Measured scan of single mutants.
Amino acid sequence: KKVTINGVEIKFNNPEEAVKFALELAKRLNLRIEFHGDQIKIE
C-alpha cells in the first residue's frame, strides 16, 4: 500500500502504519494534518 505524504510516496504494509507515522510526524513538528484518501497533507 502506497501513501503519499506531502507529495512523497511512502510504501507501508498497512494503512494504519501510514496514519500512525503521519500523526507522529505532525505531533513532533507541531503541524496540522489532512487526510484525502491515500493522500496525507501535513503543514
Rank of each mutant, 00 (worst) to 15 (best):
K1V: 15
K2Y: 13
K2L: 13
K2T: 15
K2H: 09
K2Q: 07
V3H: 03
V3Q: 02
T4F: 15
T4Q: 05
T4P: 03
T4M: 12
T4A: 04
I5A: 03
N6E: 04
N6A: 08
N6R: 06
G7P: 04
G7I: 13
E9W: 12
E9V: 14
E9N: 05
I10T: 03
I10W: 10
I10S: 02
K11W: 15
K11N: 13
K11I: 14
K11M: 14
F12Y: 04
N13H: 08
N13Q: 10
N13I: 11
N14C: 14
N14Q: 05
N14K: 07
N14H: 08
N14M: 08
N14T: 14
N14E: 03
P15F: 14
P15E: 10
P15W: 15
P15I: 13
E16N: 08
E16V: 10
E17G: 06
E17I: 07
E17V: 06
E17K: 07
A18D: 01
A18Q: 02
A18K: 01
V19I: 13
V19H: 06
K20R: 13
K20G: 03
F21S: 01
A22D: 00
L23C: 14
L23Y: 08
L23Q: 05
L23W: 07
L23R: 05
E24R: 10
E24C: 15
E24T: 08
E24V: 07
E24P: 01
L25E: 02
L25C: 13
L25T: 03
L25K: 00
L25R: 00
A26M: 08
A26I: 07
A26N: 01
A26S: 06
A26R: 03
K27H: 09
K27M: 10
K27C: 15
K27P: 01
R28E: 05
R28V: 07
R28G: 04
L29N: 03
L29E: 02
L29F: 11
L29R: 01
L29C: 15
N30F: 10
N30S: 05
L31E: 00
L31M: 11
L31T: 03
L31Q: 00
R32W: 06
R32M: 05
R32L: 05
I33S: 00
I33R: 00
I33Y: 03
E34Q: 09
E34F: 12
F35H: 04
F35A: 03
F35M: 06
H36S: 11
H36L: 13
H36I: 14
G37Q: 09
G37P: 09
G37A: 08
G37D: 09
D38M: 07
D38A: 05
D38C: 15
Q39I: 14
Q39F: 14
Q39V: 14
Q39Y: 14
Q39C: 14
I40E: 01
I40N: 01
I40M: 04
I40V: 05
K41Y: 14
K41W: 13
K41Q: 06
K41E: 05
K41H: 09
I42D: 01
I42Y: 02
E43L: 15
E43G: 13
